[in-house]
Design a binder for these strands. Structure first.
Lengths: 361, 361
DNA sequence: TTTTGTTGTGAGACCGGTCTCAAACTTGAA
DNA sequence: TTCAAGTTTGAGACCGGTCTCACAACAAAA
């Protein structure tokens, strides 16, 4: 790996020589600091233009200690949820003249660790992370620069965090299902649970996952539904095996009559699986999903969704982080953005209660 | 803007002092270059661990002249096409230990220019760009570092480029429509045309747009369809007004009986507009779109699409660029990836020919 | 034993900026 | 006219690495 012949770029010294002033003076003009007389100022600028001077941001960062960029580690940019959030982040960043270095964790802790490592070595001024797992957060605690959490809070980590009201959202959505008479309701999420779940709610410390489950369980309890924990299905990520698991769920004897999906990717997979099984929405099965993804409004029937302010989510964390970068040292904030349910056509009476109401009328 | 109290980080000198060797020797071990005796090597490593030394990538870039990162400028990360391509890029980059700085142009040349400017100032080792406009490419020609073009070729720019067989794809798709008897076929794209179109095909020099139009026109010509140019609709981006234009198109007296959409975002908008107008697919109108987006397979009816190898597109440009970064100086390559049409249910006989075939049989 | 070569190490320049400090030059009041 | 205060400028250290070069130590060849 030999060094390539570095293309000689124009430096402050070159400009200084051209303008017949000292390097320090040229640097003052070019760097926009200190005070310089009108005449010299103009001369330097002219020389810079003549030479087509381009500042080397790297060298600047070197001395100032700030790189002018923030690192963003998301689970999967391919997921529309994240790509929209990233859009929000980068829009805000651009306004502050900060740029975004993106890294994908693929929802794996090891990849997340290494990504953070690299970003830190690059001396990013701050980090926005969507922690892949909640159990393993030592590497997050060690981070010396400002850190902000996106979409997923970590109780043990007292940093700026922006999430949505996951619990309430799950509660309301589930209630919508129980009120339609459903009693076999499943919650399906892509999140993986390390270890066994049964009763160990407290062990799930990724807020998003935990809060949603709590909301889900609360609504079930309200409706007097027992052992609702059994109906929580983890690990329905983007894979063949995950799809197979869904098919099995849908084909089981006591298949759910309603499902709440944790994100639009899982929901799409579910939607396809439901079709494959020849089941009808909402006739045989009702479906609600988190995230108002594109496709949810154009299916037949269109899907009832929990609309999360995804763009705003990204925008807010970025704002919080950038404020901190500017020296704000208020105690960490935890912003919770409200969600709303967009009712479409995917929720119907439970097939089990329809018989009753028919016979009653 | 006063300098924040820089947190003193551990440097090679610190490690050197701790290990009781010279800075140069410590640097050799830590930087992994030169030759050092076993004993000293171990001692330095130990000192580094004890002090929790983290190399400053910035300083390293400073001297080596290479930053270990590439810049990616896309039109809109929010568009699933781009987010998938970016995924491809970053997967490849990660494998080479290179990271990705992402910038959004919002499909605007000015934003693109400024993004490139910033990335260049950050001394990225290379750039991957999806040029927003083809007319204004002076800023691209000036780029001194390796550049690769994604999805959109520029004839005047002889650099590594990865595109798909847009022309053939458009030709095949349009042919599918003409063979179903359609004669009023529209091509709808989000691209904006600077100036007037009529007959000035040559002026469209964004390959993607031009090639597709050429393919479209060729298929029309084959079928003996006149003035097909009139049926090309530009500027159907993500906006209220664009949607209104679509509605007007669909409600006009000589509305098309078939539409080819240039990307999935436009197509989704179209799909909704078609519904709003109370038209049925494929009964009243047939639809084919570029990009096998999520939603196209779950609508009723599912949409026939031109499946572009988007992930591979990103993967390929990244590979090309990284190869170049490693010193490969073969002449620029222009890779054209094949597409295939996934036939679903959105293409039907033209309503105008159905009557004929019925009466004939 | 002298010469030649190889290997390990240290001193210090360098990358391209920022920034401190002191010298030189203005200005204005005494 | 002189001195204090303010402004403009230049010299040079510094950031944290890389890398060249010189030198010392030792081994092998003459």
């Amino acid at each position: 790996m030999k060094r390539p012949p570095r293309l000689p770029s124009i430096t402050v010294s070159d400009v200084a020589r051209e303008a017949k002033v000292s390097k320090a003076t040229a640097a003052r003009v070019l760097g926009g600091y200190g005070r310089v007389s009108e005449t010299v100022h103009a001369a330097v600028l002219e020389a810079a233009k003549a030479l087509d001077y381009r500042p080397n941001e790297l060298a600047r960062s070197m001395t100032t200690g700030r790189s002018g960029s923030i690192g963003v580690v998301v689970g999967d940019i391919e997921n529309p949820f994240f790509s929209l959030a990233v859009r929000g982040i980068s829009d805000v960043a651009r306004l502050s003249g900060i740029n975004v270095i993106l890294a994908n964790s693929g929802e794996e802790v090891e990849a997340e660790k290494s990504a953070i490592h690299v970003l830190l070595a690059k001396r990013v001024d701050g980090l926005i992370v969507t922690p892949a797992q909640s159990g393993d957060i030592a590497h997050l605690k060690e981070i010396a620069c400002p850190l902000a959490l996106l979409d997923r809070a970590l109780p043990e980590l007292d940093v700026d965090t922006v999430t949505v009201d996951d619990r309430s959202a799950a509660l309301r959505a589930t209630r919508m299902l129980t009120q339609a008479g459903h009693r076999r309701i499943a919650y399906v999420t892509a999140a993986v649970l390390s270890g066994d779940f049964r009763g160990a709610k407290s062990r799930i410390n990724t807020s998003t996952v935990r809060e949603r489950i709590l909301g889900f369980l609360e609504a079930c309890r309200e409706a007097g539904i027992e052992v609702a924990e059994r109906n929580i299905h983890f690990g329905s990520g983007r894979s063949q095996s995950a799809h197979a698991v869904l098919l099995r769920l849908l084909r089981s004897a006591d298949r759910p009559t309603a499902i709440l999906a944790s994100d639009s990717v899982v929901a799409l997979d579910l939607f396809k699986a439901i079709r494959e099984c020849g089941l009808g929405i909402p006739r045989d099965i009702s479906l609600i999903t988190f995230h108002d993804a594109d496709w949810t409004s154009v299916t037949t029937p269109p899907i009832t969704v929990i609309d999360q302010p995804v763009y705003a989510l990204g925008k807010s964390v970025a704002e919080l982080l950038i404020r901190r970068l500017k020296g704000d040292d208020r105690p960490p904030e935890r912003i919770v953005l409200p969600t709303r349910i967009i009712e479409r056509m995917s929720v119907g009476q439970s097939p089990e209660t329809i018989g009753q109401s028919l016979s009653r009328s």
